[in-house]
């Protein structure tokens, strides 16, 4: 009898706890939830992956508060593609973007990147539930666009990253990665 009461109490406690957790998860996170340093490894695929295989990426990202309620995202990608298995071509790319909040609260405007025709392009970010997505759009001299999105979702131990690049309506590259939080 005692064990039945114990089980009922445990079930009621769990249900009560879930009623607090579920609505909290359904709400949009604030930039603060993403602050920290994360690193990990990802797999990149392109439309040529069937012929040339997938490639690996080492990824680091640091998200910090910026003036006026905004935030800065600084990320580094180490690409290993081409070359030979013994001596692969290694390239390192780094990007830093600062975002300021727009009136609605969910849209953040790229501070330095406001013109899609410029080399740096247009940048904006949005927070939807526990995902912070950064968009960078550029329009080239022939009028064709290149739209990159970095969706970073907070997970238990760190962050899941999904990168996609759309050119002319087609997804030409995607990267999926898991990052672990290294520092607050």
């Amino acid at each position: 009898m005692k064990s039945i009461f114990r089980s009922l109490f445990a079930a009621a406690f769990l249900a009560g706890a879930l009623s607090f957790v579920v609505p909290a998860q359904a709400q949009d996170a604030t930039p603060k939830a993403f602050y920290g340093v994360y690193s990990g490894t990802g797999i990149a695929r392109s439309k040529d992956s069937f012929y040339f295989g997938i490639t690996m990426r080492d990824l680091d990202v640091e998200i910090r508060p910026a003036d006026g309620g905004g935030f800065t995202v600084k990320w580094t990608t180490v690409l290993r593609q081409g070359g030979t298995p013994e001596n692969p071509d290694v390239r390192k790319k780094g990007t830093t973007l600062t975002f300021a909040p727009a009136e609605g609260g969910k849209l953040f405007k790229g501070v330095e990147r406001t013109d899609p025709y410029s080399e740096e392009g247009l940048a904006w970010a949005r927070i939807n539930k526990r995902t912070l997505t950064v968009y960078i759009m550029t329009i080239s001299g022939n009028g064709k666009y290149n739209l990159q999105s970095y969706a970073r979702t907070i997970s238990g131990r760190g962050m899941d990253l999904e990168f996609t690049r759309i050119k002319g309506g087609e997804t030409t590259r995607s990267v999926k990665a898991k990052l672990v939080k290294q520092a607050e």
Partner: peptide, 28 residues
């Protein structure tokens, strides 16, 4: 990123493409 949105057009041979980008200020 404003109310008007952003539009441009490009010609590539016999093809004319009109693009319209609209970002929702409330949701991003």
């Amino acid at each position: 990123l404003g109310i008007s949105g952003y539009s441009w057009a490009a010609i590539d041979g016999h093809k004319l493409t009109v693009y319209i980008l609209a970002v929702d200020a409330r949701t991003g």
